[in-house]
Design a protein around this nucleic acid. Structure first.
Length: 558
RNA sequence: UGGGGGAUGGUCUAACGGUAAGACAGCAGACUCUGACUCUGCCUAUCGGGGUUCGAAUCCCUGUUCCCCAGCCA
């Protein structure tokens, strides 16, 4: 039966009921993107819902259908990218890949059916006139003067629309419903408009294209969709969805159910706004690792498993909400903590010379690839007289509760030795440029045979063996939790959302890193190779997310 | 009286007439060769007012408040 681990949201309960009452014996959902842009994390919620249901229920499937009814906005590039994103998220539509454009002929015939039944008419009102006739939210509209054309005239005109006899904008096909309806969507909505535009899939076969409200229920019905899930703003459109199914000889009448779209704190999730970020150069593109697009977060190092877990945890409801990004980060850390191999990388290096370590010698030490998972094995790391540690792991005048390196203090070098800071070397400007330390040969591997407690353990790299790389540190794109609410969202962009470090030194083993594989730089965070800008002679790593940092919280408060 | 939909801790989600639950965040502590992970404990909620009931987040009335809708976009 169904998976007990998945919470029973109201949609799944509807489906449970439909199965229990025998209304349906199989369940069919669909994910219906318009190929006019890239998928973002909001789409992930819908994908996980629709494809998730298909996976959970015994006889169920989910279709991927492109809602390609507006050729001026749609491109093959997006069709390809969307499929790649859905696959990456871990879902499979099998043979069920569809396009609304595949149904154009049927949709057209249905339109003639409506005309013949006196339920649709060709209207010559201009766009502006139609707006005037539509009325307002509080005042009813009035009938178009063309509303009473005969069936014959409508049929003739509509066929000539199809034949390309009219320029764009002069004639449309409208449903004949009710111009006085409180629901504006029912005030004789447009069904077809003329567009002398080539379509990515149908080419120049058509110069009239059906509208979403008319196309969607037909597409759903033709595919045998049982539950047509969409976002809240389509709630008002449901009467039209139902009207369409009720008045056409379609094979079934799917049930449209609406749920709240995903909003995330400190980010924007709307194609229009994301497009603006791209167009105004605030980010490097749709796949900028700071973007909430699937291509962006994939490049950033987010994992499909973390995304799926996230989508499951946020639930499905009808309440407008803003989910805390920290939940997303939590899901990510939880997944990455399990799977990422540990490695050492020094983001901002400070040179350390081990004064009592014999010059010209080096040795190999053993480091665990994952402390909680021995099956991931271990590796050898080189140790020598000259090392680099993180600048932030040394304080000339240590703050209270700071238990890393400071003058006269001891600290453990992870998997290596206990060292003690003997001398601090500064340059003419007074900046610390090097530390002279001594090491305790008895503590090889990091153990303390005498039982002494060393509170601090820090990461390091061997100066001689370290690999210089570029590292990109990302922070949230916006400074406000809800950038969409207050004024122009562009005004609260975080100027520090990207920090590029070019002095970073990492273990040489990272030369073999590949995109899509995450590493934990111990004590720093999770990183992955950048799939776009990294080159063999100039590796670029993206920081996916930091580790939780209690110390930053403590020290930041003082 | 335009139409449609919502209101449960800081955030998200459960409970569907019977002890308001979980997750995230936060706080305090334990553990630790990652100030990570893990573990323990704590904090904080039913929009207001009336009713019905032995008993209401849940049912009724009323008020408040938030969101969506006037594309030949989806």
């Amino acid at each position: 039966m169904t998976n007990d681990n998945i919470p029973r949201d109201f949609i799944r309960k509807f489906i449970d009921d439909d199965l229990a009452t025998g209304k349906h014996t199989e369940i069919v959902t669909r994910f219906p993107p318009e190929p006019n842009g890239y998928l973002h994390i909001g789409h992930a919620k819908s994908i996980c819902l629709n494809f998730g249901i298909a996976k959970e229920f015994p006889a169920a499937r989910c279709h991927l259908r492109f809602d390609d009814t507006n050729p001026i906005k749609e491109e093959q590039e997006y069709i390809d990218a969307i499929q790649a994103d859905v696959k990456w998220l871990g879902f499979d539509w099998g043979q069920h890949l569809y396009y609304a454009s595949d149904y154009f002929e049927k949709i057209y015939q249905f339109a003639e059916h409506l005309i013949k039944n006196g339920q649709a008419f060709v209207c010559d009102l201009t766009a502006e006139e139609m707006r005037e006739y539509r009325g307002t939210l509080t005042e009813p509209g009035k009938n178009s003067p063309y509303r009473n054309r005969t069936v014959e005239e409508n049929l003739d005109l509509f066929r000539r629309m199809r034949a390309g006899e009219f320029p764009e904008g002069v004639r449309v096909l409208r449903a004949k419903i009710d111009m006085t309806s409180g629901n504006v969507n029912l005030r004789d909505p447009v069904l077809y408009r003329v567009m002398h535009t080539s379509h990515p899939r149908t080419g120049n076969a058509w110069c009239i294209y059906p509208m979403y409200d008319y196309t969607h229920p037909i597409s759903d019905a033709l595919e045998g969709i049982t539950h047509s899930l969409c976002t809240l703003e389509f709630e008002d459109h449901r009467p039209l969805y139902d009207w369409t199914c009720d008045n056409l000889p379609v094979p079934c009448h799917p049930r449209q159910i609406e749920f709240a779209r995903l909003n995330l704190s400190y980010t924007v999730v709307s194609k229009r706004k994301l497009l603006r970020l791209v167009k105004e150069g605030k980010v490097s593109g749709w796949d900028d690792p700071r973007m909430p697009t699937l291509s962006g977060i994939r490049r950033r190092g987010f994992t499909p498993a973390a995304l799926r877990d996230f989508c499951e945890r946020i639930g499905i409801a009808k309440k407008d909400s803003i989910v805390d990004v920290e939940l997303l980060e939590h899901c990510l850390r939880e997944d990455l903590n399990e799977s990422a191999a540990r490695v050492m990388g020094v983001l901002e290096p400070l040179k350390v010379v081990i004064s009592n370590y014999p010059e010209g010698t080096e040795e190999e030490l053993t480091a665990q690839n994952h402390p909680k998972n021995p099956e991931m094995g271990s590796r050898q790391i080189s140790f020598g007289r000259e090392l680099y540690i993180e600048r932030g792991d040394f304080m000339a005048e240590p703050a209270k509760k700071f238990f890393r390196l400071a003058p006269g203090r001891e600290v453990r070098l992870r998997y290596a030795y206990i060292i003690k800071c003997e001398e601090v070397i500064t340059n003419a400007a007074g900046e610390i440029v090097e530390l002279r330390c001594s090491y305790d040969p008895a503590t090889r591997g990091g153990d303390t045979p005498d039982g002494r407690k060393i509170k601090g353990t820090i990461h390091w790299v061997s100066a001689k063996h370290a690999l210089p790389v570029e590292v990109r540190l990302y922070d949230r794109l916006f400074r406000q939790p809800d950038p969409e609410s207050e004024g122009d969202f562009m005004d609260c962009l975080n100027p520090d959302s990207l920090l590029v470090l070019d002095q970073t030194l990492v273990e040489p083993a990272l030369a073999a890193a590949r995109p899509g594989v995450s590493y934990q730089f111990e004590r720093q965070g999770y990183f992955c190779l950048d799939s776009r800008d990294s080159r063999p002679d100039h590796l670029v790593f993206n920081r996916t997310v930091t580790l939780r940092d209690t110390w930053a919280k403590v020290s930041g408060q003082e």
